[in-house]
Structure formats: C-alpha cells, structure tokens
Nucleic acid binder design. Sequence first.
DNA 1: CTGAAAGCGCTTACAG
DNA 2: CTGAAAGCGCTTACAG
Lengths: 347, 347
Amino acid sequence: MLHQVTIKDIAKRLRISVSTVSRALRGSTEINASTRKLVMEVAAEMKYSPNPVALSLKEKKTRVIGVIVQEIANNYCSLTIAGIEDWACKMGYNVLITQSHECFNTEVANMHLLASRRVDGILITISNETKTLDHVREVMDKGIPVVMFDRVSDEINTHKVVVDDYQGAYDATRHLIAQGHKKIAHLTISRHLGITQNRLNGYLDALRTENIRPNKNWILFCDFNEIANGQMIRKLVKDKNRPTAIFCSVERLSMLCLKVLKELNIQIPEEIALAGFSDNPLGKYLNPALTTVNQPTFSIGQKATELLIDLIEDEIQPEAFKIIQLQTTLNIRASSMEVEKASNVEN
Amino acid sequence: MLHQVTIKDIAKRLRISVSTVSRALRGSTEINASTRKLVMEVAAEMKYSPNPVALSLKEKKTRVIGVIVQEIANNYCSLTIAGIEDWACKMGYNVLITQSHECFNTEVANMHLLASRRVDGILITISNETKTLDHVREVMDKGIPVVMFDRVSDEINTHKVVVDDYQGAYDATRHLIAQGHKKIAHLTISRHLGITQNRLNGYLDALRTENIRPNKNWILFCDFNEIANGQMIRKLVKDKNRPTAIFCSVERLSMLCLKVLKELNIQIPEEIALAGFSDNPLGKYLNPALTTVNQPTFSIGQKATELLIDLIEDEIQPEAFKIIQLQTTLNIRASSMEVEKASNVEN
DNA sequence: CTGAAAGCGCTTACAG
DNA sequence: CTGAAAGCGCTTACAG
C-alpha cells in the first residue's frame, strides 16, 4: 500500500506539532482559530482521513459489530442482515458477518473469532445444533455485549428480539381450521429450539380452541437430511388416515412439502392444504401461491442492532433486559384456500 | 469492556520482557525452548489472544476485504457474498459489506468509507447508475487493489470476474426459437451497463442465426420504477402485434412479467412464453415453473476474492489482468415449453 | 494557545 | 538467548 497521509505529514508541512494538528482536527476549543483553519485546509488538500486502526487501539473500541447467522444466502438471514446494516451504518458502525452453517462448532469458533477481532458487540441467532450456551456467556464475561435475535435462548440474560412465533403459528392454524380442516399436520425443526416450542404451542392451542385432539404422528420434527425429511413427508401423506392440511414451521420444509406433494400428484389445496412461515417475496408466484406467516425480518435486524448499540454505548447497564416481540402477518393465498374461493386469488 | 489480556500481562506474570513473550508466541527460533513452552502455557491459561488492531497498526494491513454490492437482500448478491465469505474465511480475511442500493452517490461514499477503514482490498459490482469510474481509480491510486465482478467496467484495468452473459442470453433465445417462437421480446435494464449490452448482443445474435429481424419496439430498457415498467410491459403484451415470448435479463423483470401476464390473464407459455436470468432456488416452484439462465454466483464470489487476495499478497503486480468468464446454465421449465411437452415437467 | 511525552498492544532491529 | 528502545497513528494529561 502506498503512503496514506497521517497527522504527522500535516504537522511537518505546517511546521507545528502533531498534538496541535490532532486538536485542530478534533475541533478542540483551546486551539487558535487561524491555526485550526490552516490545519483543516491542508488536511482537506492532502485528502487526510484519520486512521481508525490507531483510534481503535487507543480507545479500545473498533466500531465494528459482529454477527453470527446460519447462512447468508438464506433469504431470511439476508433480509435480517440488511436491517442490521441499515441501523449500524446510520450509527457509524461496520458489520462483520459470520455464518454457523447450522453447525455448533462453527458457531463457537465464530464467537471466538469475533471476540479476537475485538468487535464492540455481537448479534447472534443460534444454530440448529446449539444446546449449550457457554460460548455466549464466555464473550459476555469478557465484557462484550451480546444481543440475541430470532433463535434465542432462555439461558442467556440479555436483550432479545424475536417474532411472536406463538401467535404466528396460532393464526395460521386457526386459518386452516376456518377453511374446514380438522386434520392438520405440523412440520417443524429441532425440538429443543425455542422457536420450535413456541410455534408448536401456537399450533396446539389453536387446535384446542376447536377441541381438535392433536395427533402425535402428525407432528414431525425434521433435521437437515432432505432425503429423510422427504421420506417422512411421503409416509405422512400416503397414509390412509392422512391429514388434509400441513402447517410448516420454516420455508425450507414448505418447499419440500410442495415438491413431495407434486411428485405424488396430490392437489394443493384440494387434497392437502399448505401453509408455512416464509418471507420469500416469490411466495406469491409459487404454484400454487403459498399461504405464509411473514416475519418483519428487516425490523428484527434493525431493532437488535439498536439494542446492541445501546448496550455498547451506555455507561450504565440496564437493570432489566428487554425481550422485544415483533408481530407476524398472515398472507392467505391459494395453497390453503377453499377451492371456490381460490379462483379470485390475490396476485 | 473489561481488560483483555495482553502480552504485557504474560510478561509480568513470568517476570520476563514483552519482547521475549512476543517472540515466544510467534515461534521465533532464537528463543529457549523451555521459555517458549512456559510462555505458551501461561498464554493458554490466561486465554490470551493477540489484538489484531495492534497488529494492523504495525503491519498496515487489516486483513479485511471491503465489498460493495447493490443490495444484500437481493438473492443474487447474497449468494455471491456467501462465496466471498467462503474464500475470505479460508484465507484468514474478514469481510466488510456495504450496499449501494443502486445509487451512484452511495457507491462513491462506500468507496471512501472502505478506504478510510483501511481495508486491504475492495470487491465491487457497480450500481445501475454508475457511469463514471473516478471513485474506483481513486482508491486504486491509493494502492488499494480492486477486483470487479458481475457488473464490471471496461474503463478500469484490473482483474474481473463475470459470467458469459452473451452466451447465456444466446442460449435462452435459441431455446425460445427452438420452441417455435419468432416474435421474441427482450426486457432489460440500463442501456449503458456492460451486462445489458452483452445480454442484448446474445439475444440479437441468436435471432440473427435464424434470420429473424429484431423489432425495436420489443427491446425494452427498464429502470427501477416498477409502475412505469409494468405499464411498458402491459403496452407490449396488449399490442395487436405482440410477441409470443419474452426473455428477461434480470429476475426482477421476470417476476414483474409474471405478475402482469397473470393480471391480464394471459396464459404462460400458451400465449406468451417466458424465460429469464435468475438464480432463485424457488424458480422451479413458480407458477408456472420458470425457465432460467442460472449464474454460478457462489463461484463468482469465490473467484473474485481469490484474485483480490492474490493482488493484496503478491509482491509483484501481474503484468496483465485477468478477465474470468464463468459459464451459465440454462434450466428449461414449464414457462417456455411447448404445451404438449410441458405435461411431463421436471420438478 | 502550543508542544513534549506517554501510552494503546504489538513487533523487530539493535545491543549485549 | 534476552531485553530496552523505537515505532505503527493517534489522543490527551501535563507543562509552559
């Protein structure tokens, strides 16, 4: 790299000390106005820009926020990241993104990486595999604030930003019931994740309101083995006593359902209706258009970042941590509508 | 932030000098093996991790790569970013992502931000609005290497990674012709972008092979005003002499076409066939499943990062810069298939 | 109002 | 083999 201009260069040029240059640049009041003007002019002329690395070393602040998500290329994640970037940028912070790829060990390694990079704070949504939270406690003990979003954990005492998973699942299930369904299956992910429990409870409570007894065989906990998942779904829908509707807790499973049902030539929604959590803007163009519970992903990112920067910059720590719960919205589309209604579908 | 342990702490604990600690940690050969062992043990015990900020200041290297994309939440961008992260991570670099939001001024500001953050190199795909490249030249003149990907510019002499836009457009258009179409429209973006020109040329040359005269009214240059774009499309397809197929140069326009055609109750592909560049994994689930030209986005990110790190780390600059051209693949689906064929469609 | 000095955490040429 | 010193770019308490 060629030489970047430093305050030393400005000082030399003006034959004054670096202290004076520094003070002039920072707008210190104890500097002679004319000196200040001179320094500013020369700085502009030489295209001086302060070296943040030097500042970081001095201040022990990097103005960098570390983020751990599952997968950048995942639509949900990238929308959240956009929200994070948005708020961070406004507040003069930069963002360092890492991915766990849903692997616990990678998540732990990322935590250490971010801490060693001396980020000012960390935003995390935990992996599917994560069951212990020592790695999170460890960085918090080092004094690095952490805010959890989306997939959070009760074991960690800090600010959290989630969507109202319970309500979202409840609304979707109530909708399926309103369409006449009583035999509703639920496809979900790791049993031990908070969002799994909350969405499951929303589903169960919705059934309960209509005195529908849940069928254990219709609640499927899936993992990341798409082939095995596909077989579970195939078994579910080929059974004599099969459900007439399926509610999926994540987009990935909705898509897999769509695929399997098409392969088996099962009509949606005539034979089996479909609804699921998803934020993909293409959802409405699917075949059939998919009924989705949408999450305010961009806002989640923004809000989590706002809370984190508060923790970073506030002298006094809050006596109580906040749990922000954002509302989901239900988008009813062809995949779950009674057939006669489906003809005048939204686009 | 609480106190993070430094080499000074280790030195104090062992009553030796920081120089010795530093050398032991770095595995210098001129250190007594037993001293070295001791230092390593204490460092591990105290959970020492070197402060990269101090190193950056000394080495004038941050091991951070800056990236400028249009929009993180855009599927194409996030896939590329995943590839960038992948390679950077392997090489021990971190990535700082910024977004131009397709705005020239923001792109320039991001360029300055990244330079002032002292990134070791920059990866950029230019905005829709970008017509002058002085901001790119400026950072390169400061000694910060730049690699361009996707939307590149002839005016800048550096490594570039692109897909074979010409061939991708050519293949898609040839396919439409093979399906019996002669009246093929082309929807594209800013006229002055390289990718626009290349895709347009691929389209035109494909028509030429069959002696089909291009119709100027069927080549639409769109911008970001979705309403105006929608009206252009509506006008196109409501015309008496309308095309029987539309080839879109970007996903956004394919989706808009889909929307407009559905609104007008025009059957796809029976009345108008559709094909377009897109990498959305949901493409095959669309209604109808969309014929797409797919780009190897992940590889683009990886390759661009590889070339950038070469520029950063190699002592001698290459005498000639490379232009890497990656191949697209055509995925033929229901939106462009002759109806009788469409019945046994892939899923 | 201005300057010399110390210090942030680390490395390394120079002495010994 | 080990240590004291200088330096990366900057800020700021201390003197004057």
